[in-house]
Design a protein around this nucleic acid. Structure first.
Lengths: 259, 259
DNA sequence: CGGCATTCTTGAACGTGTTCAAACCCGCTC
DNA sequence: GAGCGGGTTTGAACACGTTCAAGAATGCCG
């Protein structure tokens, strides 16, 4: 669909190739099928080492300051080997997102267990997010840099990021669990809230206030607004507006792959 | 405020320096003060040549495929000289944005002259935007890539982009001219509409439909929604929501430099 | 064991954006 | 003219992300 990338840029001799081997995304956990070898295969162990080295260096030095050479060295492999498992440095970031997301889910669990009201649940989850990502503020800008580029596998609409995006939406679906909602919205809200959280992230990235106070304030405000909007959606006075918004969302979904 | 960038990355010998000379942003047009020499100074002419070469190559080959070496050669200067005038390749893009924005203003003029209703004016201006940027779709992603990075001078909140952003808001202020509005919003709307247009841009970037039809449809829908919201804002029933939104916006403005 | 295929690994090489110290130019004053 | 000084220009050099052809390891079948 998108042309395979190397068409305008001048190349060396013979610029073929397209998809790498990429021993990735096997069905389930390792150690399931095959001839039950004890644990991870050799390649998988190497991949693991590379991810770990990368995450550690990212955390310590930031994304830009971490070179692929440093990652390779820290993982005890040759430079080219890192590229065998991760076709680009950006792709290494995906591992990072995954980790952050899992931490976020974990941090949200207590809130979701304790609170019943929409406002409290949403607020708790959003504040948990801000909490969780705080240690990475110094380099998280990068998320958006390539996230906005349609050609980058990191943008949330790229197939490669589909899982992580849908996991994000899932979390917001949990936020809505047990909450009374206008039924026209029930379907749309998880994706909308996920988008909203991306907006907060964008604000957060630009926020250099101490302790990220401004982002926290913003979360309080916007959660109020969002919850108000959701509740107002039931009001018959707003029916025409609601119709418009739903029509827009329907169109939006045609554009993407949207499940 | 933001540390001057070269603190973690390993450097060659002596990594001092901070601000370049950058013979830029003189008060008015050239040829005003000084001993009235005919026209542009030598340096200004060189700078001009570099911009022109860059824009042409960007248009022809896209941003990534255009190398600084190619720009320099096309401008008839040495590589290093391009960096004397533009501290980075990104900064060259700014010249491009400027050009696009001026084209957008020009394309909007007829609409603003002819239409009186808010919906028509906003719709016309937004469609004009989509029209104007269409030729650059193949590489405009880059706008957002660095636009989202707080450290990049291209992000709209960076001082270096302040002028171009405020020019954008100005255009939307024109859209509102002669339109009846809830006066609480009058102040906020230009910036909000500009933000809205950025959102559309983001959609547009990801839109690979033929003739960018989907974006156009999106514009129609969202303009409807936006106009509805503005009109509803006057409704007393929504006063509490309105108050919340305004409080949020106030907070938002503290964060930025916002005029 | 000997071949063969597949997966994994290597490191040199390429092209890129960017930096820097040294030169060049040009108008000025002695 | 000689010397000075600041704006301008140069091109080599650097570090980086990425590619690639070639080589090891490993597994598999006879």
């Amino acid at each position: 669909m998108v042309e395979p990338r190397g068409s305008n840029r001048p190349r060396g001799p013979r610029g073929s190739r397209a998809a790498r081997a990429a021993p990735d995304s096997a069905a389930g956990e390792p150690g399931s099928g095959e001839h039950g070898s004890g644990e991870l295969s050799k390649g998988e162990r190497t991949k693991e080492r590379i991810v770990e080295a990368a995450l550690e260096l990212f955390r310590r030095d930031g994304y830009e300051a971490t070179t692929m050479r440093a990652v390779a060295e820290a993982a005890g492999v040759a430079l080219g080997n890192a590229y065998y498992y991760f076709a680009s440095k950006d792709l290494l970031l995906q591992a990072f997102y995954q980790e952050v997301h899992e931490a976020h889910v974990a941090a949200s669990a207590p809130v979701l267990a304790a609170q019943r009201g929409l406002r409290e649940r949403l607020l708790g989850v959003m504040l948990a997010k801000v909490e969780v990502i705080e240690p990475y503020h110094h380099f998280s800008a990068l998320m958006f840099r390539s996230a906005a580029d349609p050609k980058s596998p990191l943008n949330p609409f790229h197939p490669a990021s589909a899982t992580i995006r849908s996991e994000g939406e899932q979390l917001f679906a949990q936020v809505l669990e047990g909450v009374k909602l206008p039924k026209a919205l029930r379907h749309e809200l998880p994706a909308l809230l996920w988008t909203y959280s991306m907006g907060i992230l964008l604000y957060w990235i630009h926020d250099d206030s101490a302790g990220r106070e401004r982002t926290r304030a913003m979360v309080h405000h916007t959660v109020d607004v969002v919850v108000s909007c959701i509740q107002l959606a039931a009001n018959p006075l707003l029916r025409p507006l609601q119709r418009r918004v739903l029509a827009m969302l329907a169109d939006l979904r045609i554009g993407r792959g949207g499940a």
